[in-house]
Amino acid sequence: MNLAELQEKLIAAARLNPPDDRVPYAFEKRITALIAARSAADRWLFWTRGLWRAAASCVAVAVVCGAVSFFVPATADNSKDLSQDFENTLLASVDQADVAP
């Protein structure tokens, strides 16, 4: 069998039968509606993306703060002094009342 001839014949058959160009009813309306729906969805996408990014950066800041407070050693324990100072300040008026005759 002559395959080249068969090939030519089949290609000629394809040329003789161009595909039809019918379009489904109101196809252009469907495309326009799809584009409109997509741009509305895009707007929501903009906000949700922004909020997710904000949430992610908040989590990152919290993690960094946690890590810093956990790993960085406390330099001097002045918490007692601070509490003492705070108490002295708060009770200064009472102390003065005790001292006064």
């Binding site: 161009p18 595909p19 039809d20 160009d21 019918r22 379009v23 196809f27 252009e28 309306k29 495309i31 326009t32 584009i35 409109a36 741009s39």
Partner: peptide
């Protein structure tokens, strides 16, 4: 103005459909 896209779709869809059917 995305509505202006509709006449283009209407005009060229037959050719695009014929291509896709190939």
């Amino acid at each position: 103005d995305s509505a202006s896209f509709e006449p283009l779709v209407a005009k060229y869809s037959p050719r695009v459909f014929a291509t896709a059917r190939r």
